[in-house]
Design a protein around this nucleic acid. Structure first.
Lengths: 137, 137
DNA sequence: GGCTTTTTTGAATTTCCTTCTCAAAAACTT
DNA sequence: AAGTTTTTGAGAAGGAAATTCAAAAAAGCC
């Protein structure tokens, strides 16, 4: 089984998708990216967006985030970090705590498994939604 | 906006789905539960399984786990705990470390958000798959 | 126990997100 | 510039979960 190295070509579409994701700190869905870039590439297709997101993910240039609910979000921040998801507005925020490697060691001790990495997501209310819910009471 | 309390009736199907999940420490998909119980209820439909899983989740009797990949797993262990997913066999294991509340406090300090809970998942190779990959080298 | 009301079921259909197919277009190679 | 391989757009296909609706089952009531 020889793993043939996949060669990626440079296309305008791929470049723009990456630029859009990297230009933002929030997290975009394929659908959103499609709608945004449709203005520039009038013949863009959704399939192309999905294909490129997959390619960019394979190259390690973006992260795919899946918090359940059947929707994927794409994150341009690819250094280890965690996420916060607002239970009210569903927005996703980057949490800049460096990855806590000790957690992996602990699980390795407990289970004997080979622990490579972990994912950590926080849930609650973001500052805006927190204010809103306060006013309602 | 008055939230009407949903009344759940006791049905054989619902009871058996819950019993099956609670009787196991591994994590079951809707499809698996359907196939298992189809033997007992010959006219069972997949829709019924999905409907009941949703109801049981709402009642807090089971957890729905979604690790990306578009498939949900159901967990009968509903006290706070973490998970380990084997990157090779895709099996999900319960990790019995008590929830680390300090993480939530830290994020609250950092962001000002209201942090209710977190989810923590570890990835790597389980003992069986670790052995297999060793032998292959 | 019967009778009424409300929920649940099975079966099929529908929705939603994502992947795939394939001919035409674009990007690399030499 | 010609040949080779990848990528594109458009639409079809896939797959998990949700939904629809008439019939069946459960709970409430007398």
């Amino acid at each position: 089984m020889t793993t043939k190295k996949k060669i990626y070509r440079d296309t305008e579409q791929r470049k723009e998708i990456l630029d859009l994701i990297k230009s933002r700190t929030d997290h975009l869905t394929a659908e959103y990216i499609y709608k945004r870039l449709k203005k520039k590439f009038r013949r863009l297709s959704l399939g192309t967006v999905y294909r490129n997101l997959k390619a960019l993910k394979e190259k390690g240039l973006v992260w795919e985030l899946d918090f359940g609910g059947g929707l994927s979000y794409f994150d341009g921040l690819t250094s280890p970090h965690y996420h916060f998801i607002c239970n009210y507005c569903q927005k996703v925020f980057n949490i800049r705590i460096p990855a806590i490697k000790e957690l992996d060691y602990k699980v390795r001790e407990l289970t004997g498994f080979q622990v490579d990495f972990h994912r950590l997501e926080f849930f609650g209310l973001c500052d805006i939604c927190k204010e809103k819910s306060k006013r309602k009471k």
